[in-house]
Write a protein that binds this DNA or RNA. Structure first.
Length: 423
DNA sequence: TCTGGGGTCCTAGGACCC
DNA sequence: TCTGGGGTCCTAGGACCC
């Protein structure tokens, strides 16, 4: 049998982070909203029990929120990102190697740990995370990542497991696989689940037993690999080094629709500058920029317009003002009067390390510009976002996303650190 | 009034080459 | 009747994930 892997996953992560600093949120239904306060992207157990679904638009559940006194919070990514560091620090001593898979999930390589009682070991790990961060977690152990995902889901769903499910045992594995729907399997989305259902493949157990050749026709190599994993044959390794990123994006919905070119330029200016900041943070340059904007697709009775412009950038760059110039060009060429634009974004592709950047013929010396960017980064880091901006960003930012009930930056801004009062 | 943001991977098809 | 056979590279779009 292949070496065991585990997945440790934080329960209701964003809500749990908020609860770590606000005891009044414990024991009551809580939801955390997406950017722009649009829909529910995290729910406490109590909120789930009230029937709030992942992604429910908040304006459609107003009645429920009111009737049950559900606490509603805007998302606070600075807090969640910082808490993740603490969670990972607690996990680290328990693992030989690990892969941070998402903001609330970490895969663990337990190769060489087989002599331990891994369930007990995992319970100790959960306890460590809880002690350091108050955040509750579940752990799934299995021979493959896909099975570890299912094990984790089983640990969350079934009290019997007491937070840690080990699917290395064939009998338990079979029992669990027959309990989960095919759409619950990691990598099976709605489209594939529908195709499989038409073939009467409805549970994870059925999917495991599907003929590989048949699977290839339905879901390509992806589904084929997934079935191998369900059978206990690893098709995806634990990636312990962070892979080079392929793209980077800054996109936002607007608090109110934009009908004016200058105002759209204001938003796009901010996104391009922010994209440049992200490039510099990661020590990268980009060779291609895409700018897009569109109307509200949920309002089909209104005039719709959607535009995308992709521009090659030579030389490759991470200079904010250069990115901005490309983005402006794209927006100008695509703009049409008479539409209410509700979302726009800047995306960067062809990323490489800044020090591997190919030099082009007759390239100018960029030292002054590099210093300007470094100075802007410094100002914005020290004094807060958007303190140093190009004039085209404007000062009003009327299109700014809503974020009406964001919690304080308890751990990342000194002025917002909670204080303990002596009595 | 009102529906997120940021990623990855795969596939099909076109352009181009020998 | 009938119009090569590979390759590579690039792009757009779909599907999926958290």
């Amino acid at each position: 049998m292949s070496a065991p892997v585990a997945l440790i996953d934080c329960n209701n992560y964003y809500v749990s982070c908020e609860r770590a600093f606000d005891a009044s949120l414990v024991g009551v239904p809580v939801i955390v909203l997406s950017n722009n306060d649009g829909c529910a992207i995290a729910r406490s157990g109590e909120a789930k029990a009230l029937g709030i679904k992942m992604g429910d638009p908040v304006h459609l559940i107003r009645d429920k929120i009111k009737a049950h006194g559900i606490r509603v919070l805007s998302s606070n990514y600075a807090l969640y990102g910082d808490m993740q560091r603490r969670v990972v620090a607690a996990i680290e001593p328990f693992a030989r190697d690990f892969e941070i898979y998402s903001i609330d999930e970490t895969f663990i390589d337990f190769a060489g740990f087989e002599h331990l009682d891994l369930a007990a070991h995992s319970r100790d790990m959960r306890e460590q995370v809880r002690q350091w961060t108050t955040i509750p977690t579940c752990v799934g152990i299995a021979p493959t990542k896909t099975l570890a995902k299912l094990a984790n889901a089983a640990a969350k769903k079934n009290q019997l497991f007491d937070g840690v499910a080990d699917l290395r045992d064939e009998g338990i594995r079979k029992w669990v696989l027959d309990q989960f729907e095919v759409g619950d399997v990691w990598g099976v989305g709605r489209a594939t689940a529908e195709k499989l259902a038409a073939l009467d493949i409805k549970t994870a157990g059925c999917l495991r037993d599907m003929a590989l050749k048949h699977a290839r026709g339905i879901g390509g190599v992806v589904l084929e690999r997934l079935i191998a994993e369900l059978r206990g044959v690893p098709a995806s390794a634990i990636e312990t080094v962070e892979p080079q990123r392929k793209g980077m994006a800054v996109t936002r919905s607007f608090g109110t629709p934009i009908t004016d070119l200058d105002m759209l330029m204001g938003a796009v200016t901010q996104y391009a500058m922010r994209a440049g900041e992200k490039l510099r943070q990661h020590g990268l340059v980009a060779g291609r920029l895409t700018v897009f904007f569109h109307t509200n697709r949920h309002k089909q009775d209104r005039p719709q317009y959607s535009a995308t412009r992709t521009l090659g950038m030579q030389p490759m760059t991470n200079d904010g003002l250069t990115l901005l110039a490309y983005a402006r060009r794209g927006v100008e060429s695509a703009w049409r009067n008479g539409y209410g634009i509700t979302k726009a974004g800047v995306m960067l592709e062809d990323l490489i390390d800044a020090d591997k950047r190919p030099l082009t013929l007759f390239e100018e010396n960029n030292e002054r510009r590099d210093r300007l960017m470094a100075a802007m980064d410094e100002v914005n880091n020290r004094f807060g976002k958007f303190k140093a901006v190009p004039a085209s960003q404007g000062f009003k930012r009327e299109w700014k996303a809503r974020s009406d009930s964001r919690s304080p930056n308890y751990t990342t801004r000194i002025a917002e650190v909670p204080s303990v009062k002596a009595r």
